[in-house]
Amino acid sequence: MKSLQHLDLYGNAFGGGFSSCFGKISNLKSLQVSFCSLHVQLSQIMKYLSCMTDSLEYLNLERNYIGSSLPDVLANFSSLRELRLGFNELNGSIPRAVGKLPRLALLDLSSNEIVGSIPDLLPLSSLRELDLSHNQLSGLTESMDAFPNLRSYTSILTISSDWIPPFQLDIIRLTHCKLGPHFPNWLRDQNNIFVLDLSAAGILGNIPSSQRMIYLEPKNALLGAKDALLGAKDALLGAKNVEEN
């Protein structure tokens, strides 16, 4: 199957390991093996995919039981644009090898057991979506300032209240971030937000009225949340009426 370029195996019950037959598909551009009950080490998977280092652009291994740390051989997959490894059992820290993927536009490592701080991701100038939520990460690298194309950012990192981001986001999800106790000042300058998730962020006090759509859970003790949400509802209804007229 050397001519095969796109392979989707979503939702099968393979179990066990990862087949070595993938090592014979050298021209594959996209591979999805999510929701497949895989019990295997990521390092072994990447070994089997080593023949695709120049061709593979999309790799989705979400929602399996894939373990081990992120291997350094990831740096060899220079064509990768999307890497989805969320909801697995990955551990260890994020290696610097991840920062050596110049075409990477989406990186999802959510809901694993990854620890430590983020390494220098400065070379990832094409990155648009980054999801590191529900891990055990402890710091925000200054190299985050180097992503002018970043449109969606999700994490559980501790973020300084006086941080000034260099980008304007449409979607911000900061669930379980340590943002409190005050509403973060840097969010006030985000003018393009239409979805803002600050659930379980430990915030106290008032919500600035300028935020248009906010998803909040009871773990935030924000005064005026009801008024802010009602205002967002009125704004949406008003926009709908304008469109209808």
Rank of each mutant, 00 (worst) to 15 (best):
D162W: 09
G67A: 09
M46K: 11
S133H: 01
L90I: 01
G17V: 04
L174D: 06
Q32C: 03
K29V: 14
L42W: 00
Q190H: 07
L7K: 02
S43D: 09
I94V: 13
C21E: 05
S43Q: 11
G16F: 02
F18Q: 03
I193L: 14
S126C: 07
P181M: 08
D54V: 06
L222A: 11
S69T: 02
G180P: 02
H134L: 00
I214L: 08
R81N: 06
S30Y: 01
L187V: 06
G238H: 15
S19F: 03
T158E: 10
E82N: 04
D72F: 01
G16M: 02
P95W: 06
S110E: 06
I164D: 11
S79C: 10
Y48F: 05
D170W: 05
L38S: 00
P218S: 07
S19L: 02
R81P: 00
I156L: 04
K47D: 11
F35E: 01
E89D: 00
E62H: 04
N91Q: 09
N185A: 05
R103D: 06
H134Y: 02
L229G: 09
V40F: 12
L127E: 10
Y215Q: 02
A239Q: 13
L204D: 10
R81V: 08
S138E: 07
Q190A: 07
I156E: 05
L169R: 10
L196C: 09
V33L: 06
L230H: 13
S30W: 00
A221N: 15
R188N: 12
K219Q: 11
